[in-house]
């Protein structure tokens, strides 16, 4: 599993700052394959798509 903010291994290092930042950011990396996702932010939400692992929404 990868950190969906910084794309690094979620099990290694400290991602507390990433988790805090994610309160005000959509995810950028696919947690399964760490590809950069296509992310669309709209006024009331976001969608993030990985070409391999599908789409997540807020």
């Amino acid at each position: 599993m990868f950190c969906d903010r910084c794309g690094e291994d979620a099990a290694q290092g400290d991602h507390a700052a990433c988790a805090a930042a994610r309160e005000l950011e959509p995810p950028r990396f696919c947690p399964q394959c760490r590809r950069r996702m296509k992310v669309q932010v709209v006024p009331t939400g976001w969608t993030a798509s990985c070409v391999e692992h599908g789409t997540r929404t807020s």
Binding site: E25, P26, V39, V41, W46
Partner: peptide, 13 residues
């Protein structure tokens, strides 16, 4: 500006 921004999120409207 209420709601989200362009690439980051705001607080709820």
């Amino acid at each position: 500006i209420v709601g989200n921004y362009l690439t980051t999120l705001g607080r709820p409207a």
